[in-house]
Simulated scan of single mutants.
Amino acid sequence: MTSIDHIRQPRNLIGNEGSRLRGKDPLPRLLVQLLERAGEPAIVERAASRPWASALFQGRRHVIALRLSGPDAQERRAVFAAGLEEAEWSLPRHFVADITIDGGHSAPQEEVIELSALTIEDW
């Protein structure tokens, strides 16, 4: 599991991408980009990451839940979901091999998006 407590400082994470995040779990950088895609107000409700490997590749499997709130939350969810699988992500020394929305739920002025992603180390 990966703690995301430090995600509250996204500008610092982005600014230090070359030194701090090299070869490490790409989850913090991915979370910053997912929050940007979701728009404000949005928070990471839950995120976990674990190692993944195949015969030829190694990477990490991520499970994430985002909470979008506000009167436009339903429209923002639709925009977030549109083209998610084809989206470009900037992850130092990693790439997103697969990202999907697994579920979620709606409430008045609130949307929760549950998704999973597979990142692969880019040698």
Rank of each mutant, 00 (worst) to 15 (best):
Q9H: 11
P10D: 12
P10Y: 15
P10R: 15
R11K: 06
N12Q: 15
L13P: 02
L13T: 09
N16S: 03
N16Y: 03
E17Y: 07
G18H: 14
R20H: 13
L21V: 14
L21S: 08
R22E: 03
R22N: 06
R22K: 15
G23V: 06
G23C: 06
K24R: 09
K24C: 07
K24P: 02
D25M: 09
D25W: 02
D25I: 10
L27D: 02
L27N: 05
P28H: 12
P28N: 10
L30V: 10
V32P: 04
Q33E: 15
L35P: 05
L35I: 08
L35Q: 09
E36N: 09
E36I: 12
R37W: 08
R37E: 10
R37V: 09
A38S: 02
A38L: 05
A38G: 01
A38W: 12
G39P: 01
I43S: 14
V44H: 11
V44D: 07
E45G: 11
A47D: 09
A48Y: 05
S49Q: 00
S49Y: 09
R50A: 08
A53L: 07
A53S: 14
A53N: 00
A55S: 09
A55P: 04
L56Y: 13
F57W: 11
F57M: 07
Q58N: 04
G59K: 06
G59D: 04
G59V: 13
R60T: 07
R60Y: 11
R61C: 04
R61G: 00
V63R: 03
A65V: 12
L66F: 10
L66R: 05
R67D: 06
R67L: 10
S69L: 04
S69H: 00
S69M: 08
S69W: 04
G70I: 05
G70D: 03
G70P: 01
G70Q: 03
D72T: 11
A73P: 01
A73K: 05
A73S: 15
Q74D: 08
E75G: 00
E75K: 02
E75V: 08
E75C: 02
R76A: 02
A78S: 10
V79L: 04
F80P: 01
F80V: 07
A82R: 12
A82Q: 15
A82V: 06
G83P: 10
L84M: 10
E85I: 07
E86N: 14
E86I: 07
E86A: 15
E88M: 05
W89I: 03
W89Y: 11
W89V: 08
L91A: 00
P92A: 00
P92F: 14
R93W: 05
R93H: 00
H94K: 06
H94Y: 10
F95R: 07
F95L: 04
V96C: 08
V96S: 05
A97Q: 03
A97C: 03
A97H: 13
D98H: 02
D98L: 14
I99Q: 00
I99C: 00
T100N: 03
I101E: 14
I101H: 09
I101R: 03
G104F: 13
H105G: 01
H105T: 07
S106M: 07
A107Y: 05
Q109Y: 02
E110K: 01
E111M: 14
E111A: 11
V112E: 09
I113M: 09
E114R: 14
E114L: 09
L115M: 14
L115S: 13
